[in-house]
Design a binder for these strands. Structure first.
Lengths: 259, 259
DNA sequence: CGAGGGTTTGAAGTGCATCAAATAGTGTGG
DNA sequence: CCACACTATTTGATGCACTTCAAACCCTCG
């Protein structure tokens, strides 16, 4: 069982703080086992905590009165959520539900709020993490506008893949096709059919949640034509703390002790 | 002719800084007249400046190689753009073009970058402004997922209106219908037809760019049903510095000297 | 083995896009 | 002040993409 501190160090938001500061968060943190379907909080609830995913998947979404829902994001290990409530009058800007059982860490939002006002390093980290999120959302919006269902699937697959690879590639869908569909803003049926079309158009091989292909080229041709970014678009694994993190090369917050 | 300092004070990003700090920005700022169609910068250009709209309208967008474009946002007086390039490896994350002639102020991005690392008040302001933008984008994505064309138009109108009004209301479209259409992610033809449908469904009266109705109720009924937010959703006039600004009630950055 | 959820397939409908053309509106020069 | 040129907007006709509803299939797990 990894230490809470190690978990915190995996996040983009808190990972680069000094050990001392991390301990402050770790001390108030709480580990929670999660089960599929469990609702963690509801859109516009008063926010008491923010969370880190340790294991499993968490779905963020909003829904209308009649139950129609729009998936905001689907997160896993190292991702942080609920933290932006401090800029939303203390209310959660979406609902959160466990999509696949696992574990999360909960930390009082009040702590984040007070720390962020005192610790410039933290507010810079929050900026970096919001900037990354923003970039991701901008791209998502663009894709919804410009790409059709099959292209969005192709793009999604490319973002799962190692974009450096030049030979054959195997990709595993990280969660239910139904969930992928909602993540991409389409119906499960549409997903199924669109994947079929993608298969035909690019010659990828699909077996359950596993997808194989001779190279990424076909996919790139098919999907990236309808995108404003050039191919190796190495998608920002939103919110986790990885080697290159697109921070302001300020030198301010550079040490990241991650796995 | 208003002073550059006054213009800066209208922005959410820089409006709350102390006079001294504002002067630092004002000193390096440059006023530029803009004409319709003028391209201010291109997606992924090296960012040298960020901008404030003084007058007129500026369209932010991205486009694919074949010219298909996705409008990111359309900005006017007091709005800031290009500033997030500091978190994007120094590249602009979208293209910017003048949609209606006016004036902008340009400020070296390097100045923002250095100031933001030194001035916690500024980094908090940047956080606030990014949070607000994020909220807006989240909502946009939700609307694209859940609302149909007519509902999106209705919602757009509601956000233009004084949501407190209880009696008759008159709304003016701020720019071309074609531009509104693109802002809402639809074709001009679709916009025209969808507006017709909206007219029928809600009894609003449309004459050119002017829209009148007995009360907002009809519109609220029609559009807000397909939205996760409750009605008086007083949309954050993104990026401008208004009375209530959804900042962390930190007390840190509270004085706003706006018009 | 059977239940239940995930996934696929079929058939039909809806909404938006597209192409083409008419109409309204705006600004210009005569 | 009018006619022309040009642009914005509307309207019509048609097609495609995605959704919806219904049912079958498949797979996993108790």
């Amino acid at each position: 069982m990894s230490d809470i501190k190690d978990i915190i160090k995996q996040t983009l938001l808190l990972g680069r703080l000094d050990d001392e500061c991390i301990r402050v968060f770790a001390d108030k943190a709480q580990r929670i086992k999660t089960n599929k379907g469990q609702v963690l909080f509801i859109h516009e609830d008063e926010a008491e905590s923010f969370f880190i995913v340790v294991k499993g998947w968490v779905k963020l979404f909003r829904e209308t009165l009649d139950g129609t829902q729009a998936v905001v994001d689907i997160l896993t290990t190292g991702h942080v959520f609920g933290e932006t409530s401090i800029f939303e009058d203390g209310l959660y800007p979406y609902s959160a539900e466990v999509a696949e059982k696992g574990e999360i860490v909960s930390i009082p939002i009040s702590l984040l709020k007070s720390e962020i006002e005192q610790n410039p390093k933290l507010s810079m980290a929050m900026l970096t993490s919001m900037a990354r999120y923003r970039k991701q959302q901008d791209q998502e919006l663009e894709h919804r506008t410009i790409q059709n269902a099959s292209q969005r699937i192709g793009c999604f697959l490319l973002r799962l893949a190692d974009q450096g690879a030049s030979g054959p590639v195997v990709i595993h869908l990280p969660y239910d096709k139904t969930l992928v569909a909602s993540r991409l803003g389409m119906q499960p049926e549409t997903f199924s059919r669109a994947l079929g079309k993608l298969k035909q158009a690019t010659g990828i091989y699909v077996k359950g949640a596993t997808i194989e292909m001779d190279s990424l080229d076909q996919l790139v041709n098919y999907s990236c034509a309808a995108c404003s970014s050039e191919f190796p678009c190495k998608d920002i694994a939103a919110n986790t703390c990885s080697k290159d993190s697109g921070s302001t090369d300020s030198g301010t917050a550079k040490k990241c002790l991650n796995a």
